[in-house]
Design a protein around this nucleic acid. Structure first.
Length: 591
RNA sequence: GGGGUGUUAGCUCAGCUUGGUUAGAGUGCCUGCCUGUCACGCAGGAGGUCGCGAGUUCGAGUCUCGUACACCCCGCCA
């Protein structure tokens, strides 16, 4: 029916005088009686259609009956608008199409919510009618930007000799890491596949196979609770390279991200990205993914309070904890009430309280100031370089709690005081992660990244003298990339030496037998001339979310799940028939 | 598993503190008028199980308890 359709948003001045065909949806209708204006919308944008009832009464009669979101075929002549009727807020605003043919291809119910973006709409409703939500300009732009991003990823990586290879979705469940989504096997009674948390093992196998540069834009699955930036299924840009060091991986990713920024939001980014060590990030910001768009750094002041009379501090130090503080310039914005709110806030991170003092031109007042000795005051104002009017918050507890607390408090104050320049995109490499972490309760070691991550070569020997105390001296060849305080990717150079891998399993308390059952194929493969290799995975959804400044990851995923993991549109998950369950040898039991 | 916020017209929200006549606004929707609008304008009209269920009370949108759903956070996840 359409012989040569023109896209609404692409009607151009060069077509002036030409007769064109359009297909789209009624975005708006302005019926002035004798003249009717329709705004017709398709994936490319909007163009104004004019119908003059005195010149074409039949067409005007049809136009009168159309409503918003009717699907139309329109034919007519492109013409320039007179100077005083140009609409500068529309890309095609200098033009319009005088219709000589209108056909209602399909009528539409009145949409349950307005499709123009002025008002915020209940997200539940948007998700229920996602097909309408996706017609909104904001969502359309998001989907298109995401498309451009994935196109650039494929083009850039292909140009850099990466090969796109698919890996299985039905996979083997592996221990550790996130909870697996399981898929029961019908053919093998009582057996289960797991959906991949990432293609980790397979991409390493591909290195052994000699595909020295692999990539995939791939769905990954983790059965954990949802968050603003976490969905049970999400997309990774996954890569792996042979014969490389960390620097090669970093270089490839920096080039890729620069291209992605250009393609999605037209921004030039400065390379290379700054780098920080894990230790420094933890010291200065209290977390391994710092937001560097503003200052307010943490300062360790355990040394100042070594002999403190203030019980809270001395007790924390005595039990092996630390004391850090967060000095904040305060021109009165942090009122007493706010300080109290912050005390409540830090309790969510398991802090017992939030000691603070006010500093005013050399004097300490309020809060815990009466517990500070003269020498402590001196040392503090020197170490923190206190000037003018400031408020200093303290954290004193186990290291993890102090860092967690002050890192989050820093972010909250940064937002409250408007210290964050929202226009910035601060990329940051975080390097030299510890190889292992120690679980106090289970009294065992865990791999911080994963168990195939290589230690730094000069630290391999330290594995023999490992204790929970010296654990942080063993660094991994692991790296994260952070954007505005959000981890957007992480990877490592892998272990390709069987002896080192054995040692790693030993440390993690995984017996040779266990390892064989769980990863025998990878361990076997590594014995057949595995090349040194490493890689990284980027969280595509998160990157798009940050670049487009969307509020949540759900806003950049076409069909996301709610916090309870449900799809409001399709109603998944849902019960299945008893017959289906029987086939799978599955019985649903009560709690 | 835990903490918090919300749920009133198709949509966005007010009303709840201090229970009391017929639950309002804007917008959308419907009808009529209107030949240069672009958030068109003007006039008229329809539209409500105040999420659901108990309770307190002479009387509950409003107070209490429970519950469902959505969102944010802790745990979980890297």
């Amino acid at each position: 029916m359409f012989t040569q359709r023109t896209y609404c948003g692409e009607v151009s001045d060069s077509q002036s005088g030409e007769r064109i065909q359009l297909g789209g949806w009624v975005d708006k209708k302005r019926d002035l009686g004798g003249i009717i204006f329709l705004e017709l919308r398709d994936v490319s944008g909007i163009v104004q259609i004019v119908i003059d009832s005195s010149r074409s009464p039949d067409i005007a009669a049809i136009a009168e009956t159309v409503r918003n979101e009717f699907c139309l075929r329109v034919e007519g002549t492109v013409r320039r608008r007179s100077a005083e009727t140009v609409n500068p807020s529309l890309a095609t605003g200098a033009l319009e199409v005088e219709a000589d043919y209108i056909e209602v291809l399909n009528s539409s119910l009145t949409p349950p919510f307005p499709l123009d973006t002025r008002n915020s709409i209940n997200e539940e409703l948007r998700l229920q009618y996602r097909y309408l939500d996706l017609r909104r300009e904001e969502m359309r732009e998001t989907i298109l930007a995401r498309h451009r991003a994935t196109q650039v990823i494929r083009r850039y990586l292909s140009a850099n000799r990466f090969i796109e290879i698919e890996t299985p979705i039905l996979n083997k469940s592996t221990p550790e890491g996130a909870r697996d989504f399981l898929v029961p096997s019908r053919i093998s009674r009582g057996m289960f596949y797991a959906l991949p948390q990432s293609p980790q093992l397979f991409k390493q196998i591909l290195m052994v196979s000699g595909f020295d540069r692999y990539f995939q834009v791939v769905k990954c699955f983790r059965d954990e609770d949802l968050r603003n930036d976490r969905q049970p299924e999400f997309t990774q840009v996954d890569l792996e390279l042979s014969f490389v060091t960390r620097e090669t991986v970093i270089g490839v990713i920096e080039g890729l991200i620069a291209e992605m920024l250009r393609a999605t939001i037209g921004l030039e980014v400065e390379l290379p990205f700054p780098r920080i060590s894990y230790d420094e990030a933890m010291t200065r910001y209290g977390k391994d993914a710092p937001d560097t768009r503003f200052g307010l750094e943490l300062v360790d002041c355990g040394d100042i309070f070594k002999g403190a009379s203030f019980n809270v501090f001395s007790a924390a130090l005595a039990s092996g904890g630390i004391i850090k503080c967060l000095p904040v310039p305060d021109d009165g914005a942090i009122s007493r009430k706010m300080a109290d709110d912050y005390t409540e806030y830090v309790k969510t991170f398991r802090a017992k309280g939030l000691p603070y003092v006010r500093y005013r031109e050399g004097d300490f007042e309020g809060g815990i100031s009466k517990f500070l000795s003269e020498s402590e005051r001196m040392a503090l104002s020197k170490k923190l370089d206190l000037k003018g009017v400031m408020i200093v918050f303290f954290g004193s507890d186990r290291e993890g709690i102090v860092n967690d607390t002050l890192a989050n408090l820093r972010l909250k104050i940064g937002r409250d005081l408007n210290l964050i320049d929202e226009s910035r995109f601060n990329f940051l490499w975080v390097l030299d992660f510890p190889l292992l972490e120690y679980d106090e309760e289970e009294r065992r070691y865990y791999a911080k990244h994963h168990m195939f991550t290589a230690p730094r070569e000069e630290h391999v020997a330290l594995l023999d003298t490992l204790t929970p105390e010296n654990i942080n001296t063993i660094k991994a060849q692991a790296y994260d990339i952070v954007l505005n305080g959000v981890e957007i990717g992480g990877g490592s150079i892998r272990i390709h030496n069987t002896d080192v891998q054995k040692k790693m399993f030993e440390v993690l308390g995984i017996s040779e037998e266990d390892a064989k059952i769980k990863f025998s194929f990878l361990l076997e493969a590594l014995k057949y001339g595995a090349p040194p290799h490493g890689g990284i995975a980027l969280g595509l959804d998160r990157i798009i979310m940050l670049l487009l400044r969307r509020n949540s990851i759900r806003d950049v995923i076409p069909f996301p799940k709610t916090q309870k993991g449900q799809c409001m549109m399709s109603d998944a998950p849902s019960p299945v028939s008893p017959a289906q369950l029987r086939e799978l040898y599955i019985k649903v039991v009560d709690k």
